[in-house]
Amino acid sequence: MKDSEILNRISCGDEQALDYLYKKYYRMMTRIVLSNDGTEEEAKDVYQEALLVFWQKAVRKDLILTSKISTYLYSICLNQWRKELDRKSRLSSERVEGEYFQQHDSKERLKIVTGCIEELGDVCKKVLTYYYFDGMNMQEIANKMQFANTDTAKTKKYKCKKKLDSLIKLRYTTEDFFD
């Protein structure tokens, strides 16, 4: 599959094209981390993060590719791993401790939201995640979800978001998030 085809398919939200891309460059990209004191797990995580950045940019049509996809992914992986190495070297024990608590709170809140998202129906989950993570517009969501038009998609998104908000507010007070 050529780069142009991959990009075209990914920009349409084709997850199988993402699978193909992930497998195609896995060894090449993870070697960056593995050959620079990283573990297999770290290498995989860096590559997945880089690929999801590529995915988001492609779906949002924010990406104008001037090089090969592999070159683009390579640069993202390299930058991410440099940042991670810097973060590791800069962190003192105090800061690690502070970061630990910060991360712990963040994880707890994420757990609460995730629990409420799980309670949504499949359509709502897709509409909301396509909108907030993938960055699809209403037309793209309508096409992907086979809605009648963009208004339907817009209404669906609003209702689903309202339902999620109410689920979260019903079970948890705002103080649970910010105390």
């Binding site: 939201v113 989950k125 909301l128 995640t129 907030y132 908000d165 705002t174």
Partner: peptide, 20 residues
């Protein structure tokens, strides 16, 4: 609160794709 919810939705989708 909305920021937390949006981050939660993003994280949910990201974990979905990573699992894939």
């Amino acid at each position: 609160l909305q920021k937390e919810i949006i981050d939660g939705l993003k994280g949910y989708r990201k974990s979905q794709l990573k699992s894939r």
